[in-house]
């Protein structure tokens, strides 16, 4: 979630010379710090992930293939893609709109909009699920019974899971785009307006191309969050295998069903998606922060 301000090209002459030189401190201290950092990461992140991958293939590749071809798995995969396919475009469009409103408009309640764009980061997924149950449960929800009469099921069905996914992945596009919009300023947009462009033309031809890296980064983060959402979806889905089970729910269900190979195999699939996301993030991220060597 780094600020993207530094992606904008900086004139070569403006880079202070001494900035990135590693400090010539005590060599022993440096090696010590490096050892602590690497050991912590190895024990906390790398070790577990590697071991899980190894455990997956402990009994060869056949059980893994079998686990990844069951109808339950393929349905979960499809449902996960559905979540992403709905939540990501919605949050991209509205995320950019929210960022424009926060940065370019002056109105009362602007601070509130800004705060609401961070708020979902501080809400437990379980609370999101609970909130949707309170609103849309067909049994005693605020709108659930009425919606059921119209033939619309929200809870224990994909619409509720989509709402949950949209909630938890809402902040990312807006939070990435806001600093970029601030950084590019309004000169280019004003120039376009004076040259005769309408507001809509100015947005498509000038603003959007200028913020595209920020939008792309936000989309990647949104996708990661949407793919991996578990807690909120767990509550609203009812975890009906083969019907309302996403990949993350499938992992849990297989694990609790004493089928560790399927749970691990599905986890590896999700982890590979995570790695793909990381690769995309690297591509888009400002070079400076990622690789200062």
């Amino acid at each position: 979630m780094s600020a993207l301000t530094s992606t904008l090209p900086v004139p070569a002459g403006d880079v202070p010379v001494g900035k990135k030189r590693p400090i010539e401190g005590s060599r022993g201290a440096r090696l010590g710090l490096r050892a602590v950092a690497l050991a912590y990461l190895a024990l906390l992140v790398l070790g577990p992930v590697v071991l899980m991958t190894l455990s997956t293939f402990a009994e060869g590749i056949a059980p893994v293939v079998e686990a990844l071809t069951t109808p339950a798995f393929t349905h979960a995969l499809w449902l996960t893609f559905l979540m992403v396919a709905v939540a990501v475009p919605l949050n991209t469009v509205f995320g950019v709109a929210c960022a424009l409103v926060v940065v370019r408009h002056e109105f009362r309640g602007k601070g509130l909009v800004d705060a609401l764009l961070t708020l979902p980061l501080g809400v437990s997924p379980v609370v999101v699920g609970l909130a949707l149950i309170i609103l849309y449960s067909p049994l005693g929800g605020w709108f659930g019974p009425w919606l059921r009469e119209q033939g619309i099921m929200v809870i224990f069905a994909p619409p509720g899971m989509i709402l949950a996914t949209v909630f938890v992945s809402l902040p990312f596009v807006a939070r990435e785009v806001i600093p970029v919009l601030r950084e590019i300023g309004t000169d280019q947009e004003q120039a376009a307006r004076i040259l005769g462009a309408s507001g809509w033309q100015t947005f498509w031809l000038v603003t959007l191309p200028a913020i595209r890296v920020g939008v792309a980064y936000g989309v990647v983060l949104t996708t990661a969050r949407a793919l991996g959402e578990y807690g909120a979806v767990a509550i609203v889905s009812g975890k009906l295998a083969g019907r309302t089970e996403t990949l993350t729910l499938h992992v849990e269900e297989r694990w609790l069903g004493f089928d560790p190979v399927a749970a691990y195999a599905t986890s590896v699939v999700l982890a590979l998606m995570a790695v793909l996301v990381l690769v995309l993030m690297r591509r888009l991220e400002p070079k400076e922060i990622g690789d200062s060597g």
Partner: peptide, 20 residues
């Protein structure tokens, strides 16, 4: 009138070049 209907040309101090 909005700027686009005034028939003015404007040059900004910091160029306002469309970078892309």
């Amino acid at each position: 009138l909005p700027p686009q209907e005034r028939g003015v040309g404007f040059v900004f101090q910091h160029y306002a070049a469309f970078k892309h």
